[in-house]
Amino acid sequence: MELRVLKYFLVVAREENITKAAKMLHITQPTLSRQLMQMEEEFGVSLFKRSKHSIILTEEGRILRRRAQELVDLAEKTAKEVSRQDEVISGEIAIGCGETKNLEPMAKVMAAFQQVYGDVHFTLYTGIADDVKERIEQGTLDFGLLIEPVDVSRYRCLRMPWKDHWSVLLRQDHPLAAKEAIEPQDLAGQRLIMPARLSVLTQVEAWLGRWQDEICTAAFMNLSVYNKEVLTQNGLGLALGLDFNFTLPGLCLRPMKPAIENGSYMVWKNNQFLSPLLERFIEFTEAYLREHYGAQGGE
């Protein structure tokens, strides 16, 4: 059994569609179908249940998938270990991120990585999670630093060490500035600058609860802490967003009660070929976060 054919089998098992799998593998559908039938003849069992629109694994197929993945992973790991002696780690790493405190530990990782691999440079793209995920899927970004709420089920990921906490940004001369924390009922009748990203807006509306009908939305906006502060400074409204502990003159931050906090993930595409550079950066990042911030969860 050739390793190449096992890889074909794994792609078909994942996609559950011969046509789609053949396109991904850059081979013809008849060629792929013939390879699968030869595999079934070699093992003497049916590996797939075939229908008009899909192809799914039999019990024997599921057993083979586990073993095939182990064999492919071992072969790739062995090849990397053998070739790594002469590897030259250089090139570009493209990372997309939103505005999060976790950019600080990520920046420390990047700086430490460059100290070891001086021929590596980074390209950073700032955008909301939906934009970053789209660019990862398109292949224009290698990694994303995504802030919750976000679905990362389609990605490999590392959990970042810090939590981002939400606050209300307001002018120091506003009556609510006298409060230690802002509760939903405090915002009744206020003009608010709200997040434009739908999943985040839903989170904020859940926090507001029955009081959301009592507020007036002055503006929706994504990202740019500075722009949000300029709008607040000039009286457009109170801004709800993440607390970065710095403000323009005349502004202040008050925590939201009950608290809203969001974690972040470093993500990359699942089931894709990774260059030695990207493989090394993932390994380096995981080790750095574990050493400097405690054990981090890979998911």
Rank of each mutant, 00 (worst) to 15 (best):
E70P: 11
S224I: 10
T126M: 08
K7Q: 15
G96M: 07
M24G: 03
E92H: 00
R154D: 11
R67I: 01
V168E: 04
Q138H: 14
V150P: 10
P249F: 00
E214C: 09
K179S: 13
D151P: 02
G91D: 12
G250E: 01
R154H: 08
I93E: 06
L141S: 11
Q233P: 03
E291N: 07
L57H: 10
Y8I: 05
G241Q: 03
A112D: 02
M266H: 08
G298R: 11
N222F: 06
E60T: 11
L208M: 10
L176F: 11
A129P: 00
L169M: 15
K77Q: 04
S33A: 03
E283V: 08
K23Q: 15
Y125A: 02
Q172L: 14
L170A: 08
E214Y: 10
R197W: 07
F273I: 14
D119I: 00
Q185K: 13
P161Y: 08
K77Y: 04
L145V: 15
Q203C: 00
Q69S: 12
Q233M: 12
D186M: 09
T247N: 12
F220K: 13
I27W: 04
G250P: 00
K228A: 15
C216H: 12
A13F: 07
G139T: 13
Q85W: 09
Q190P: 06
L251I: 13
Y293S: 01
I27R: 04
R67G: 05
L32F: 05
E229R: 02
E92D: 07
L192H: 05
S153N: 07
L192G: 01
S264V: 15
P184Y: 14
E229P: 02
F9L: 11
L231H: 01
V12H: 09
Q35S: 15
V72N: 08
H121N: 13
E70V: 15
I182G: 01
E76W: 06
L176S: 10
E40Q: 04
S264R: 09
A218W: 07
I128D: 03
G98F: 05
R135W: 02
N234A: 05
G294L: 06
E92Q: 01
E40L: 07
L238Y: 03
E137K: 12
V88W: 04
L253Q: 04
L36F: 02
I136Q: 07
L198E: 09
V168H: 01
R34I: 09
L145T: 13
G250Y: 02
I128P: 05
Q203E: 07
K20G: 01
R254W: 11
K20Q: 12
V120N: 00
V11D: 04
N270R: 12
E286G: 09
N245Q: 14
K23W: 03
A239W: 08
Y265G: 05
Q38L: 14
K108N: 00
E70I: 14
S264L: 11
I260W: 07
E16C: 10
L25D: 10
R197P: 06
L124S: 01
L158C: 04
A177M: 06
S83C: 03
D186R: 10
A112S: 03
R159I: 03
L248E: 05
G61K: 04
E70H: 13
E87S: 14
M194D: 07
K52T: 14
T28R: 02
E299K: 12
A111S: 14
A75N: 01
M194C: 10
G44C: 08
V204K: 05
Y155L: 06
